[in-house]
Amino acid sequence: MNIVVCMKQVPDTETRIKIGSDGRSIDPADVEWIVNPYDEYAVEEALQMKERTGAGEVVVVSVGNERATTAIRSCLAMGADRGILLKTEHPFGDTFSIAEALANLLKEMEFDVLLFGKQAVDDDNAQVAQLVAHMLDLPCVTVVTKLEIEGSTAKAHREVEGGTEIVETSLPSVFAAEKDLNQPRYASLKGIMTAKKKQIEEKETQLGHFKIEVIEMLKPPPRPEGRIVGEGREAVPELMQLLKNEANVI
């Protein structure tokens, strides 16, 4: 089984975000970069699929600058076979142009399963999996919490309001991973050593067809100063009074 995972390098979720001097993107200084957490579930799922079938390869593809090779290397250390970097210097991507760049590469590749994380935790767009699926004319299931493959059919569990949809689809197909899908493995020391010898192919890429324009990035308005109502259960009646008469929420 051949599996391709599309992965994005993002700031660590603990990062404090500073607005950059252009006023439209973040200041990358002091940011610690990681594999997008949802993409780690996608990589883990790909590795498990390959282990179950005992054949094929797992390829990790990323769009980003030179720095993204470290994130690809982390995925190779987990066990992926090789990586491809679509190299571009554009700082804050436009989903459509990124999807186009990925689709252009992917249509030359052979795969049974194409995995994404359900969204990147930086721009939180949650669009690229569906855009790429449409550009490649493939079915796509998003927010997948469980994935079972049998022959050329897949059953994917998808979390929605009030329950779980079980979606059946034919392969090849696109899936976007949600947190519950699996428990990503840590790279072993051996994995980290082997990863150094694995291939990462870099392809210079021009992004085109921008559909959106970010005009400003700003900090969210600060919340109004709160107050400590009191200590322990003695404070409960006053809290009730405030919720009822001041906030009018109960």
Partner: peptide, 11 residues
């Protein structure tokens, strides 16, 4: 964006 740590205005 960044889970609410910043906002962007977009056309």
């Amino acid at each position: 964006v960044y889970a609410g740590k910043a906002l962007i205005k977009t056309f």
